[in-house]
Nucleic acid binder design. Structure first.
Lengths: 173, 173
DNA sequence: ACCTGCTGCGGCGATTTGCCACACCTGTCC
DNA sequence: GGACAGGTGTGGCAAATCGCCGCAGCAGGT
């Protein structure tokens, strides 16, 4: 499978690219929006892995452009700080799946191949942990507050310092 | 708008129904899967609010049936313990939007009318505090575990002793 | 009687939180 | 320019909380 990796973090991108190559993919890479579009035009990939945070710009805006350019492409969004509204927005814009970092190369490949992780899951009794729920809610409120940490902390009823400390940690699995 | 409310929790369903009626909706209600399907056939609603947890059965399986029965219906999933994979699965199965409890009647109505909540939501929304959300989720999981504190603590990913201490305190306002 | 599982409670160290302070930056207003 | 307000990042420190241990009691099944 010919895959385009759009990700600004160099180390993460190269390691993921290597892992995908080892699994038999032809991997093209791009580190920003303009490179991504030109590379997509040139390489005509069957699969795309798109990071949501591309430096200053938002990867979300690339989804419709990529979808229009390559209607048949398998488009996977990969993000470190995800939330349910942002996941829904991504699929509304044309993404096929939405993964959270850290995601294993196997997970990414499974998503690229369209093996639905959700269909394989028995979908029974997997209640989210308290930490996970807290993380999702924080992301939701933070998004609602336009990224304003002080306002989000006030809305959440916690200290601004505490919110900052929570944001500085990894999302719970 | 003619709305069908599928929700097993009686108190939550009636309050939401009242709130929607007050906002000019014609509200039909169902508390289980079979009642939901027959009511959907009879009332031909334009909007459906579907709870994921319908007693023992999973509300997820109803989505394709409802979608097949009413292709044009606006189908909203409302769930207490949401996660990104389950949200994606719901929209893949045919849901239009996915809300988390506690959701205000205004949020539900906005979702039913197709106003994209993620973009149209006013920043000054009455978001629940972290403590309140935590308390609600604990109550829900504890109920799902049949009141078994040890199992609920394991599902929540916290220590049993911590759960007991949290339960010993007053619910946040 | 025996074992298993759940519950309630106490204690202790490690972690987290709330609350202060301070410095830095970016706008805005006079 | 200078003052000012609002947002952000960082540090420190006491207090609260959490995780983990133990123990005892009590129900249910063998």
């Amino acid at each position: 499978m010919r895959v385009l990796l759009i990700e600004d973090d160099e180390s993460f991108r190269t390691t993921l690219a290597l892992a995908l190559k080892r699994r038999g993919c032809e991997v093209h890479q791009a580190a920003n929006a303009t490179a991504a579009m030109s590379e997509a035009r040139a390489a005509q990939p069957q699969g795309i892995v798109l990071d949501m945070r591309l430096g200053s710009s938002n990867g979300m805006v690339l989804i419709p452009e990529l979808r229009q350019l390559l209607p048949q492409v398998r488009l996977i969004v990969l993000t470190g700080y995800g939330s349910i509204p942002s996941a829904l927005e991504a699929v509304r814009l044309g993404a096929d799946d939405y993964l959270l970092k850290p995601a294993s190369a196997d997970q990414v490949l499974a998503a690229l191949e369209g093996l639905d992780g959700s269909s394989a899951r028995p979908a029974a009794a997997d209640l989210p942990s308290l930490a996970r729920l807290e993380w999702e809610h924080i992301q939701r409120v933070l998004h609602d507050c336009g990224g304003n940490i002080s306002h989000a902390a006030a809305a959440l009823g916690i200290d601004r310092r505490t919110l900052q400390r929570k944001l500085g940690k990894q999302p719970p699995s």
